[in-house]
Simulated assay, not measured.
Amino acid sequence: MADRGAGSPAITVETELDESTVAAYWKLYRETFAELETRAMARHLLHEHEFVEEMTDPRVMKYVARNADGEVVGLSTLTRDLETVPWISPGWWAHHYPEHTARNAVYYLGFTLVRQDQRQTSVMWAMISTIVEMLVAEKAVCGYDYCKFNNEVLRLGPGTEALLHRIADVEVEATDTQTYYTALFSGPPRSS
Rank of each mutant, 00 (worst) to 15 (best):
A2R: 03
A94S: 12
E53V: 00
K148F: 00
A40T: 08
Q120K: 12
E71D: 15
Q178R: 06
L184N: 10
W87P: 00
E99T: 14
V64S: 07
T179V: 11
T38M: 02
A24K: 02
G110T: 05
A42T: 10
L46G: 05
I167F: 07
N67V: 11
E152I: 02
E53G: 06
I128Y: 04
F185V: 12
K27T: 15
L82I: 03
I128W: 02
N150T: 03
G70R: 04
E16I: 09
A183I: 13
F149R: 04
V106K: 03
E152R: 06
D3A: 13
F149C: 09
H44T: 09
K148C: 01
M1H: 07
G7M: 01
A10S: 09
S122H: 15
S129K: 03
G159K: 15
V22Y: 00
S8I: 02
T56V: 02
V64H: 04
V13A: 14
E173T: 15
S191E: 11
K139D: 14
L164W: 10
G143P: 02
F111R: 09
Y63V: 00
E138R: 09
G110H: 08
D18V: 11
Q116Y: 01
F33G: 06
R43P: 05
M134S: 07
T84Y: 04
Y146A: 07
H44E: 15
I128K: 13
E53T: 10
G5T: 09
R59T: 12
A42W: 02
E19V: 01
A102L: 07
A65R: 01
L82F: 11
A24T: 09
E133C: 12
R115T: 10
A10M: 06
R115Q: 12
R103D: 08
T177Y: 15
V72K: 01
A140S: 11
G110L: 14
Q178K: 07
H95L: 14
D81R: 03
P90N: 02
A162C: 05
P158K: 15
L156M: 14
A10I: 05
D117K: 01
A102N: 05
C142D: 03
L135E: 04
E152G: 08
P98E: 14
L154G: 00
A137R: 05
L154K: 08
Y97P: 00
G187F: 13
H47P: 01
V73L: 06
E31Q: 13
E35Q: 08
A23V: 06
V153L: 04
K139G: 10
V172F: 05
S191T: 13
H100N: 13
L17K: 04
E173Q: 14
L75G: 11
L109S: 15
